[in-house]
Write a protein that binds this DNA or RNA. Structure first.
Length: 465
RNA sequence: GGCGCUAUAGCCAAGUGGUAAGGCCAGGGUCUGCAAAACCCUCAUCCCCCGGUUCAAAUCCGGGUGGCGCCUCCA
């Protein structure tokens, strides 16, 4: 199995530090707002990586964090009048709920910054003792980037490079503009904890280093997060942890691509954030996953208007086939090793979910052909597909349940005006009377109103064009 | 200005040395009063440009150009 390592910019053969065991950590969400599709994608891909490693026989410990104290949370707290800790807890609850709706599993361990304040303070104290960090009179503590020779190794930049674009705030008392905060002194009315440097709160980067150490010790196998975290967040984690331990912190650094909407970066300022909660109103969680996994996790995903509808359509087709097979032959027995080994072959190459999903079209073509030919082994193939692909979070539902869900979500999106419904009914009657001229005239009328009539065997359906 | 990612058909997208997967769209056909659906067929002599390495390159190297991102909070 090969994994792309951001540190070396190559795909490397995967071999954990300790045989048979994998320690992995993925940076979670700063809980200042709602979960968007980018958060969902990141949670999804690391959930899949964890599950695939387990399938390969590894015993995986997977930790994720919630950053539950930061500037934005404090700002939200001010705006809403809700205490920061309560605001964070409420947001976490909301995010957890939507992730469950997405059917993304919890990690082995959930870590929260506010529950690790002692670990963070210890970590900072040790850095100061070793000469890698310094406290300034106002109560801030900074990491001294010049004290760590490897600084910049992940993002491939030097301290000089960084000074080029760094913003210098006059209020800060840093020795070097590239130094970053480990501890921030509390301002009036802010949530804070007692520390050797006064009342304050942890900086963002230190929490991941400290919680990693608390959860795993000095070294881990896989560390993940969005590509936007490479610098400065992950660079700083390396600096903090490695200057303390003197050991390589992470064996494989992995980074997922970001979500773009019609070619533009998704951001709050552009107002194009797609919230999971909203998407789930229109699409099944499986369609959302299918859509996201059609692109390699390392690439950015460009969400175009037809991405989710197409994914839903494909899944609907697949589920219809599953339904037809199961109603004829019942539930089969998974035993098609070809489907499963081909899937593993794709996943072994840096979790190539895009390739694995594209195989489904061929697989279902064969299943349909078998069904038409009266070959009952198609039921076994269906059972295998469900078993194999459930790792990606699809085909986990009962076919009837899925089809009903999609229908109700589709109805949720479009409601047909009564006028059109009336015309369609008139047309159906004309059709039954074999009055083709009138039926066609009514079809044209409905068409003008922006709807289309589709006849089935037993009735008709009206859809928005 | 520095750093990184990326460039494959109208669109999405896989493919890291052996001669272009898959999906959408489009076109043709079968079927059906018509339409839709379904099914079948077709759809990149070529992978941004220019050089180089090689028997062989979309794939490796060098140089360009374009797009995106990071350098401030960000999955």
């Amino acid at each position: 199995m090969r994994i792309y390592n951001t540190l070396t910019r190559t795909k490397e053969e995967f071999a954990p530090l300790e045989k048979g065991k994998v320690r992995m950590y993925a940076c979670g969400i700063t809980v200042s707002g709602e979960a968007h599709i980018g958060h969902g994608f990141q949670a999804l891909i690391y959930d899949i990586i964890r599950k695939y490693l387990e399938k390969k026989g590894y015993s995986v410990t997977y930790a994720r964090n919630y950053t539950d104290v930061d500037d934005k949370i404090i700002a939200r707290s001010r705006e809403t009048g809700i205490p920061a800790d309560r605001y964070a807890a409420m947001t976490i609850e909301k995010i957890d709920r939507v992730m469950r709706e997405m059917d993304i599993d919890d990690p082995t361990v959930w870590l929260k910054a506010t529950e690790n304040i002692d670990n963070i303070i210890d970590f900072i104290s040790e850095l100061i003792a070793k000469g890698h960090a310094y406290a300034v009179p106002c109560g801030d503590v900074y990491f001294d980037v010049t004290s760590f020779k490897g600084y910049g190794c992940l993002s491939n930049r030097t301290v000089e490079d960084m000074l080029d674009g760094v913003r210098i705030d006059n209020g800060e008392e840093k020795r070097n503009p590239a130094d970053f905060a480990l501890w921030k002194a509390a301002k009036e009315g802010e949530i804070s904890w007692r520390s050797p440097w006064g009342e304050g709160r942890p900086g963002w980067h230190i929490e991941c280093s400290a919680m990693n150490r608390a959860a795993f010790g000095e070294q881990i196998d896989i560390h993940g997060g969005g590509r936007d975290l490479i610098f400065p967040h992950h660079e700083n984690e390396i600096a903090q942890t490695e200057s303390l331990t003197g050991k390589r912190f992470v064996k494989y650094w992995t980074h997922n691509g970001l979500i773009k909407v019609n070619g533009q970066k998704m951001s709050k300022s552009l107002g194009n954030s797609l919230l999971l909660e909203d998407l789930l109103k229109s699409y099944s969680n499986e369609a959302i996953k299918f859509a996201l996994l059609q692109t390699n996790y390392r690439n950015d995903i460009n969400i175009t208007d037809n991405l989710f509808p197409d994914a839903e359509k494909h899944l609907t087709d697949f589920y219809r086939t599953i339904s037809a097979v199961e109603s004829k032959y019942g539930k089969g027995v998974a035993g098609n090793s070809e489907i499963d080994s081909r899937f593993d072959e794709c996943m072994d190459d840096d979790f190539n979910t895009a390739l694995a999903l594209s195989d489904l079209f061929g697989i279902f073509k064969k299943i349909s052909a078998k069904l038409a030919a009266g070959d009952s082994t198609c039921a076994d193939d269906v059972a295998q597909v469900k078993k194999t692909y459930s790792l990606l979070g699809i085909f986990k539902k009962d076919a009837a349940q899925y089809l009903a869900e999609v229908e109700s979500k589709a109805n949720n999106v479009e409601s047909v005006p009564a006028e059109v419904v009336g015309l369609a009914e008139k047309r159906w009657q004309a059709k039954l009377a074999r009055n083709w001229a009138e039926a066609d005239a009514l079809r044209a009328e409905i068409d003008r109103l922006g709807y289309a009539v589709k006849d089935g065997k037993e009735g008709y359906e009206v859809v928005k064009k």
